Computed example of a mutant assay.
Amino acid sequence: MRESAAERHDRLLALVRERGTARVSDLADLLGVSPVTARRDVEALAARGLLDRVHGQVSWPRGQGAPAGSGAAGPAGGLVLGLLAPSATYYFAEVIRGAHEAAAKVGARLILRISDYRPDEDRARTEGLLAAGAQGVLVAPGWRGPEDRLAYGDWLAELPVPAVLLERRADPGTPLDGLDRVVSDHGHGVLLALRHLLGLGHGTPVLVARRDSPTALAVRAGYADALAALGLTAPLPVIDSVSAEADPEGFERAVGALREAVGSGLATAALVHNDVDAIQMVQRLAESGLRVPRDLAVIAYDDEVAALADIPLTAVAPPKRQVGRHAAELLVERLTEGHTSPEEEAARRHLSLLPRLRVRASCGAQSH
């Protein structure tokens, strides 16, 4: 089986830990790869703070001390925290940034692994973090739906180090439910959006959403809960959206369904998950003569790029950076609480942070 880049990075880190310092050309020979590949790997690891690089050589970061797995402390006597995320871009970039800032504030070092939404590889990636010296981990599994959580979740509760779940929930009564976790309350975010649109005089907004991520599923569940809380009935079933890049025909069907809902008078307002889909849908609707906000008020969910649309989109903004920050702070607390018996250990925590609504031009309301 072909070696993955992550596996090669693990071998490279192990070689540098053993030697302290190594030439990039020597690492290429030892790894059995080209000098170009070794140089690219070194640059990637150095950019993440896992190696120091000077004049064709790399060395184990100063202050990290003994090799991984020895229990040694990280920079300035601090801790080494691991973070597994499904992506380092879009939504999770801010989560990672918040965790990094919190770790740096207390002198801890954060090391990162990316799963690319492949939940079957989450365990190996997390074990790689432990091999690289992580004394505790922040984990956002690459689950896309409940079936992934059931198939690839139990191992998390068996980790030999403290772990905090990021932006993921567990089924009540399962071992995972006993872990610390920090999440955005997406149900609250959906309720904010619906109340805003109703307050502008619209009828019940329609939901356009994907099914391909825990956030998408939480938005769908939050929509049903919000309708019940407000005593409303959906004007039509949720419009299933998909990535325009991955499934152009499926995306066009979603655009067509929204266009028909507006044309028939069933919808004058919509909540769309996510930002990218919302921007592209607004563009496609405009091509057929439907204008935002004149014909349709739109709120996007995520607020990653919503403000950059031709017509800046009002958006629900989950507190992504704060999720990362609070999770890292909680993990540091676990690692430093110094209890001497299970009775003294602090209670596990499930922390839900509330999204905000950022009002822009796409609802026809004045920004504030």
Rank of each mutant, 00 (worst) to 15 (best):
H9C: 14
R11C: 08
R11A: 10
V24M: 12
A38C: 09
R39W: 12
R39V: 10
V42D: 00
V58D: 01
Q64D: 13
G69E: 07
G74F: 01
P75D: 10
G77T: 06
G77V: 06
G78E: 02
G82C: 15
A85S: 13
A88V: 11
I96Y: 06
A102K: 00
A103T: 07
L110S: 05
L110T: 04
R113L: 12
I114D: 10
Y117G: 12
T126S: 12
A131G: 10
A131I: 06
G133Y: 06
A134H: 01
L138H: 07
E147I: 09
E147F: 09
D148W: 13
R149E: 10
V161Y: 07
P162H: 00
V164G: 04
V164I: 13
R168M: 13
P175Y: 05
L176P: 01
D177P: 02
G178F: 00
G178R: 11
V182M: 08
L191T: 13
R195P: 07
L197S: 03
L200S: 03
P205I: 12
L207A: 09
L207T: 03
V208P: 05
V208G: 00
P214W: 01
T215F: 08
D225Y: 10
A226I: 08
A228M: 03
A229F: 04
G231F: 04
A234K: 03
V238D: 04
E249C: 03
G256D: 12
R259C: 03
S264E: 14
A267D: 11
A270G: 05
A270N: 04
L271V: 12
V276Y: 11
I279M: 09
M281A: 00
E287V: 09
G289P: 05
R291P: 04
R291A: 14
P293V: 07
L296Y: 05
L296W: 00
V298I: 04
V305Y: 10
D310Y: 08
T314C: 07
T314N: 02
V323L: 04
G324I: 04
A328D: 04
R334F: 04
H339C: 13
T340G: 12
E343A: 14
H350C: 06
C363F: 06
Q366Y: 14
H368N: 10
